[in-house]
Computed example of a mutant assay.
Amino acid sequence: MVRFKNRWLLVEFLPTDPSSNASAAGLHQIEGKHIWASIKDSVLSHFGDVGWGTVSLSLTVKYYSPTTHICIIRVARDHHKIAWGAVTMLRSIEGVGCIPHVIHVSGTIKHAQLAAIEHNRVVVGRYRARANAPPAYKDSYEEYLDTSTNEIESLRD
């Protein structure tokens, strides 16, 4: 039996103008299918039909969090650099300007999940620091961290 080997990309989409609420609100409206379509367009424009043919069967957006703007993408191991390049060259998703930041690349979904959970904690820590919240303060982010951790851990290959 042949096993398909994948690479898992953990990507954060940073709004191009974080001071503008319109940019951040636009990223809240985005879904996994929009990210997939944008990656497809990027692969086609930068790598052509041959590039799209190599990654099209294995490219999948497994998870996207509109709160922290992180995404987990699965792609075949042999062609992950094409997908990585296409993600890096994205400038907007559905007309919303963003800068993609590849945080982690792994060979297993488990390591991508662990990196995503840790990154969620870091981002929530940034949000709390920006709000000058005391360390023991209970806010809606606690509930978000619990639900996002459960969602991420429930992902299957």
Results as ranks from 00 to 15, higher is better:
I72K: 06
H104M: 06
V75W: 09
I73T: 05
M1F: 07
G32I: 01
G48Q: 03
T16G: 00
G107A: 06
V61R: 05
L14Q: 08
H111I: 03
G48F: 03
I93Q: 06
P15N: 01
G26V: 02
S58A: 13
I39C: 02
S106E: 01
P18D: 00
P66Q: 03
A37K: 13
N6V: 05
R121D: 07
L59R: 09
V75F: 08
W36S: 11
E153Y: 14
Y63D: 08
W52G: 07
A25P: 00
V124K: 02
H80S: 10
R126P: 00
V11S: 01
A116H: 05
H79E: 10
A83I: 08
Y141C: 00
A25W: 09
E94L: 14
A133W: 12
F47T: 00
G53N: 11
V2N: 13
E31G: 12
C98H: 04
A86F: 06
L145R: 05
R121W: 02
P134S: 15
L44N: 11
R7Q: 14
S56N: 13
L90V: 05
D157N: 14
G53D: 10
S45D: 14
S45F: 01
S148E: 13
Y63V: 07
P66W: 01
D41S: 15
P135T: 12
I30C: 03
H34S: 13
A115S: 11
G32N: 10
P15M: 04
L90P: 05
A76S: 11
R3A: 08
M1V: 07
P18E: 01
Y141Q: 00
K33C: 09
M89K: 12
G53F: 07
I30D: 02
Y141S: 05
I152L: 13
P134Y: 10
E12T: 01
G85I: 08
